[in-house]
Design a protein around this nucleic acid. Structure first.
Lengths: 222, 222
DNA sequence: CTGTGTGAAGGAGTTCACAGCG
DNA sequence: CGCTGTGAACTCCTTCACACAG
């Protein structure tokens, strides 16, 4: 893969394209134009073409993109071409919701294990997966060479859990705890703070701020 | 409030500043500099000053910001000065998790009601809140003049639910369903797609992509 | 002399416009 | 002729550098 520096915002859009392609393939659509992809995603056609151009030329001029071919390319680019293994730490409501959703809806990710420190949570079943005690975390991560983790633990435990995960070999973390996590340069931490999402939404709920929205709305996905 | 057009990215950072201020006030810290706020948040000090400058001059030169004063200002700016009412539609695991988290951790938002269409979910209790049938949605939203809604319903129902919410007077929606929602210009829809968050994370989990991370990491919050 | 507030410079990301290929 | 691929223009956001107030 001949990567130049790819903007983060581009990477965040790739899975959206992937999802649309999966739908199109299910509907047996073979060819799609950037204009049509624009309608489905809300991003402009130029932006979609530019995004893909970071990685190569996948279309056919005058025709469009072959859906199956582009899907394969996107899977390779994102790194989903082999089902990616991941672990989830914290089996509260959010951890359970996320685990269940990932198992049933996320074709490209395999949840290897869910961990929790609370004894009364350990042993519970999420779909077909039993919650394991944190004491087994090291073993599971190392034995399976897992690189990706999701943490949905209380704020107070987040940094400690991250430190452990990093030590065991994790390189990318999705963090739901509302704290700034300190981590080595080569470990990528992505924060999703649901409280913030709701609070910043409220800014846009009052009529006075309407103008701002209109002018920003085009890239309102995420 | 003399708003000029305020960038969306600025608005997303305001709740983060608010959270830090709440923590500082709890620790009885009266004054904070943009440099110190930078350490706590990961954003640069200049950026923090610029963000606040969109709304006024709240600091004291040579000293810093009064935490209580700045907190009050931020609350007014975001629109959280009176506890904001919101409803949640969809009481699956994610809806339950989000509701519980909002009730117990989000000081500034008041969950008025949670709705679900499934008869076996209606009547369930989330903390102290009983899940209501969707048939009561119109009444509750209109009677309380609610403007903010969160939808955590299945993909197939998302657009219909949004159409109804808009009709009942909702102006800002946090959408967890992975679909492009069509809505009137004056209704703000913010999408959070957890599957996408995990998938795009995976791009950064492999060593080849390390370089990209480093150079993008400074604004890695969200 | 410290730390805010801000114009100016720089960088990142998006849109425009069109050349080029099927 | 249609739609991709892409330099160039533009817009938006961040960083720099410093004037200014306490």
């Amino acid at each position: 893969m001949p990567h130049r520096l790819v903007p983060k915002l581009v990477i965040k859009r790739l899975p959206i394209y992937l999802r649309i392609l999966d739908q199109l393939i299910r509907r047996e659509v073979d060819i799609i134009s950037s204009r049509e992809l624009s309608n489905e995603t809300g991003f402009t056609a130029e932006q979609i073409r530019k995004d893909l151009a970071y990685f190569g030329a996948f279309g056919t001029r005058g025709t469009g993109y072959n859906t199956m071919f582009l899907r394969e390319k996107l899977l390779k680019i994102i790194g989903l071409d082999n089902k990616t293994n991941a672990v989830i730490v914290g089996a509260g409501h959010l951890g359970i919701a996320f685990t269940g959703y990932t198992i049933t809806n996320n074709l490209y990710v395999n949840v290897v294990a869910v961990f929790d420190s609370e004894p009364y949570v350990v042993g519970k079943k999420i779909i077909n997966l039993e919650v394991l005690p944190v004491s087994e975390m090291e073993k599971v991560i190392k034995e399976n060479s897992i690189k990706v983790a999701v943490i949905s633990v209380p704020l107070s435990q987040a940094q400690t859990v991250v430190n452990n995960l990093v030590e065991y070999g994790i390189t990318a973390i999705l963090n739901f705890a509302p704290v700034k996590i300190n981590s080595p340069e080569d470990v990528y931490v992505h924060n999703v703070d649901l409280t913030n999402e709701l609070q910043s939404l409220i800014y846009y709920s009052s009529a006075e701020n309407e103008r701002h929205m209109r002018l920003n709305q085009k890239s309102s996905e995420q």
